[in-house]
């Protein structure tokens, strides 16, 4: 059986809220290392990969591999019934028909319980190769969100170019062009505002802004975001969570002329 207690229901609420417009029905794969999810969007252009490690829960118990097939709209309806500060416990039997969610208020004796009917989801897992990325950019998640939103006002696509001088986000559209360039930057007092660019070779790739703006819905999960790029491979956008858990998005590039 599965029994996993999250100190803050808000974490799962934010994760599901961030991915529910990209993917609809997902398997939450539970085993003794934690709760994982991998799902592609309908167009097979973007992929969500979530890992909530066992250490993110206290306690965490999962005796055998259980796939919980859940419709994210249904899950969101139930998660909205939780207060942000509530403690959340996920429970399921070994061959479950439902997943049980219990919300406990830390301040009162209120206890609420919901069951969500599970679905049989035949989901293909893609093998994501271990990649040594040519460029890794760590920046404030709010800054990345702002750049994507600003450039989307002008164009459907953004070119991301990383060189030793910095990272340039540029676009061109019907009304004109736009570009934002960031250089490495260290803010001693507010390290969350740092921009770090680790580069082994220059990279230039083009991506759809519609997807990037969608990924940025995860900005509330982490003050920083990591962009990993190599020429001619999908972009990795990673929001790190506590206890080495993470929410990752992969986006296939636009290629050719």
């Amino acid at each position: 059986m599965l029994e996993a207690r999250l100190e803050q229901a808000n974490l799962l609420k934010k994760v599901v809220d961030a991915i529910k417009d990209l993917v609809q029905d997902c398997n939450f794969d539970c085993n003794d290392s934690g709760v994982a999810l991998q799902a592609m969007d309908n167009s097979h252009v973007a992929l969500v990969s979530m890992m909530l490690k066992a250490e993110s829960f206290s306690p965490f118990r999962c005796d055998r591999n259980i796939a919980l097939g859940i419709n994210l709209t249904s899950l969101m309806k139930v998660l909205r019934c939780a207060q942000n500060e509530d403690i959340l416990t996920l429970k399921a039997e070994d061959a479950p028909d439902v997943v049980n969610l219990v919300f406990e208020s830390s301040e009162s004796d209120r206890l609420s319980e919901y069951d969500i009917k599970l679905m049989d989801i035949d989901q293909e897992h893609l093998g994501i190769p271990e990649t040594e990325y040519a460029a890794t950019i760590t920046m404030p998640s709010a800054e990345f969100q702002r750049i994507c939103r600003d450039l989307m006002a002008l164009s459907e696509s953004v070119a991301i170019e990383a060189t030793k001088d910095g990272v340039k986000f540029s676009c061109s559209g019907d009304i004109g062009n736009g570009a934002v360039t960031l250089r490495s930057h260290t803010n001693v007092e507010k390290p969350d505002l740092n921009v770090e660019i680790a580069l082994s070779e220059p990279v230039a790739l083009t991506f759809s802004l519609k997807y990037l703006v969608n990924f940025c819905k995860a900005s509330g999960l982490s003050s920083t975001v990591k962009l990993c790029l190599s020429n001619e491979v999908p972009l990795l956008v990673e929001y790190g969570l506590a206890s080495n858990s993470y929410l990752r998005f992969y986006l296939a590039p636009k290629i050719g002329d």
């Binding site: 592609m40 759809s208 290629i255």
Partner: peptide, 14 residues
């Protein structure tokens, strides 16, 4: 204009 690739081109199916 460049064409949108899909992930199947890069990530292996099981």
């Amino acid at each position: 204009p460049p064409k949108q690739a899909t992930l199947g081109k890069f990530f292996a199916r099981p």
